[in-house]
């Protein structure tokens, strides 16, 4: 393929990847930002979203688009509910101690994987996209649905931003983030806020999964990759900064495609992983975060 179209394809793929990254990482970033909790089960919330989406679209009669729309509503509710329950039953009792929380969310992720394996099975199963449109460019074809994912991701991220900056709920979350004791003194029910934020983070992962699952497939081990990628994005962007997360997603998404053109893709992944570690070591506030 000539260089021009090649670059075009790499850019398109990079944009889709950036959207996917931003979508999966935003929930993790939110949870870390407000609760100072590293949620290792985040990838499994993503997986649960995809699996529930399969159930919804599989058993719902009518056109695929309608079933898909239903999945977009049902999945985040179900997964958010599970997350709120996990928070109340487990994380709260650990008093959100960072290390204990990590161990507990590792435990949760095993349990979620087993639940998916038992009730859904070991197969990778496709979920039909709400519409089947292929863009035929002169040099190559491209999935129209992928473009739709980019648009949906932008809308969703905009909604999260509005929620955080323009609503009372966002104000309460930011207040809790700044100082939970003072927030409590002002009559904020911190327990409820935490459960809500944890559910919101998981729900965002689930929405991301529903949007992405027609591109990939639902599989009980699919949570591992989004988790690592989300970690990378959130760290590079600066832990807890939404704007940083978005910026990092765009940079990583776009550069990933280009790097793997010049290097062996496995080598590219090694370098990316080491880069993340180095950022944490030498610039713990992230590439885009301000010095604390």
């Amino acid at each position: 393929m000539d260089f021009g179209p090649y670059l075009l394809l790499a850019l398109m793929e990079g944009t889709v990847m950036a959207a996917v990254l931003a979508l999966t990482a935003v929930g993790l970033s939110l949870v870390f930002g407000v609760m100072r909790v590293v949620n290792v089960a985040h990838g499994e919330f993503f997986m649960l979203g995809a699996v529930v989406a399969w159930f919804v679209t599989h058993y719902m009669p009518g056109p695929p688009a309608l079933a898909f729309a239903a999945a977009l509503v049902i999945c985040p509710l179900v997964v958010g509910g599970i997350a709120a329950l996990s928070d109340t039953l487990i994380l709260k009792r650990l008093n959100y101690d960072p290390e204990a929380t990590i161990v507990a969310t590792i435990g949760l992720s095993y349990i979620f994987q087993q639940a998916a394996l038992t009730f859904y099975g070991p197969d990778a199963r496709p979920v039909e996209a709400p519409f089947n449109l292929r863009l035929q460019l002169p040099w190559f074809g491209y999935s129209g649905y992928k473009i739709a994912v980019v648009l949906a991701a932008m809308l969703l991220l905009l909604a999260v931003w509005l929620l955080m900056t323009r609503t009372r709920a966002g104000l309460i979350m930011r207040a809790t983030q700044l100082d939970r004791n003072t927030a409590r003194a002002f009559g904020i029910n911190v327990d409820k806020v935490y459960a809500g934020v944890f559910a919101l983070g998981a729900g965002l992962a689930a929405v991301a999964a529903v949007l992405i699952v027609p591109i990939q497939q639902a599989h009980y081990l699919m949570g591992h990759d989004p988790l690592l990628l989300s970690f990378i994005v959130v760290i590079i962007g600066g832990l807890g900064s939404l704007r940083g997360t978005l910026l990092a997603a765009v940079i990583i998404g776009l550069s990933d495609g280009v790097i793997s053109v010049f290097f062996s893709p496995t080598l590219a992944k090694i370098l990316a992983t080491l880069l993340v570690a180095m950022v944490l070591v030498f610039r713990p506030q992230g590439l885009f975060g301000a010095k604390p």
Binding site: I90, R93, L94, A100, V103, A104, I106, G107, L108, S109, Y110, I111, Q113, Q114, A115, L117, T118
Partner: peptide, 18 residues
């Protein structure tokens, strides 16, 4: 369900016998 056994063990430990 081995995965469940491992996961549950982690949770029980961290909750009740840290």
């Amino acid at each position: 369900a081995h995965l469940f056994v491992v996961g549950a063990a982690l949770l029980v430990l961290v909750l009740f016998a840290p």
